[in-house]
């Protein structure tokens, strides 16, 4: 197992290298010019050229790439073209809200979706199953931003139970931290819950039709024991896979959720940096997201071995 993990970790290096090359050149190919944005509305062409020269954006693209790679190899992601602050500091500032939002969404989604998926499979073609399937279809169909606006209108503007927007770090108190995450987590988690609930249901249905489940039932085992201990564990591999895939969905989902709920996380940082053509930030963020995705996949693969003893690395 250790050798496998090391092999996989080593394999991330070429993946990250390919990502680095792609993100650098795609950004340079894309239209837009940070110098023109910095110079402002009334800037002449000469003024824009002067800003571009000072930023080093007029140098040959390969030279810019080599310089960026050299700094990257030393752990330096560069500085923002606009704020002049190190990209590592900017990412560090935004990490906590995104991690908090992602984990709370994951927690809410997994804690709710797996039980309702299990219940749907157990009560297949009955009322509970139909309700779960309706929820799953709606969860996929309703866009996250729409759910967000509806939640804000009901729970923040009308009832005034929860704040409309913003993020309070956990250091400012547990309740301010939690209350700011409730609506975004629900809005972001709806699609994810629908996905996990459907996969749990489908996977459980397949397992529940197996002979050993029939045997367990005929032995007189309690339904809860059959469902949770015998069926769910064996149905877990596809569920865990979907949870892993869902983390990628969450990364893209936080962009919208963070915008609507004004959470200063990595998603908003990405959108703002792309719109402003702040190349160093976009490059740094894509590398971070790619690394997270690679690591999540690794963790998921490793977890298979624990969930299914037949899988060996």
């Amino acid at each position: 197992m250790t050798a496998y993990i090391l092999r996989r970790l080593l394999a991330t290096l070429p993946v990250m290298a390919v990502v680095a090359v792609f993100v650098f050149f795609l950004l340079r190919i894309a239209p837009g010019d940070p110098a023109a944005i910095i110079a402002g509305e009334d800037a002449t062409r000469e003024a824009i050229e002067a800003v571009r020269a000072k930023l080093g954006l007029d140098r040959p693209i390969l030279e810019q790439f080599a310089l960026w790679l050299w700094r990257l190899a030393q752990g330096d992601l560069g500085v923002s073209i606009f704020s002049n602050l190190p990209v590592t500091r900017l990412i560090g500032q935004r990490l906590e809200p995104t991690v908090a939002l992602t984990l709370s969404t994951l927690l809410v989604a997994v804690a709710l979706a797996i039980p309702i998926g299990v219940v749907a499979a157990w009560q297949v073609r009955k009322l509970a199953d139909r309700l779960v399937m309706i929820f799953a279809v709606l969860g996929f169909a309703v866009p996250g931003f729409l759910a967000a606006y509806v939640l804000i209108y009901i729970f923040a503007v009308q009832l005034q139970w929860l704040p409309v927007q913003g993020y309070r770090p956990i250091a400012e108190g547990l309740w301010p931290f939690v209350e700011g995450l409730i609506l975004p987590s629900v809005a972001l988690g709806v699609t994810y819950m629908a996905l996990i609930a459907r996969i749990t249901r489908a996977s459980m249905l397949e397992v529940l039709s197996q002979d050993y489940i029939r045997t367990a039932n005929s032995k007189g085992l309690a339904t809860r024991r059959v469902l949770l201990l015998h069926a769910l564990k064996n149905a877990a591999v596809p569920i865990v896979t979907v949870i892993g895939i869902g983390i990628a969905l969450l990364i893209s989902g936080v962009v919208i959720t963070e915008t609507v709920f004004n959470i200063p996380g990595l998603g908003r940082l990405t959108v703002d940096a792309v719109l402003k053509r702040d190349y160093p930030i976009v490059q740094g963020l894509i590398l971070v997201f790619a690394a997270v995705k690679v690591l999540v996949n690794l963790v998921i693969d490793i977890s298979y071995a624990f969930l299914d003893p037949r899988i060996r690395y």
């Binding site: 606006y149 804000i152 209108y153 923040a156 503007v157 005034q160 704040p163 409309v164 927007q165 913003g166 915008t259 609507v260 709920f261 004004n262 908003r268 703002d272």
Partner: peptide, 16 residues
């Protein structure tokens, strides 16, 4: 900075 104008409007109404 609230980039979404609807959120900013709701935040003003809510007193945030």
């Amino acid at each position: 900075w609230i980039s979404d104008s609807q959120t900013a409007m709701s935040a003003l109404i809510n007193g945030e």
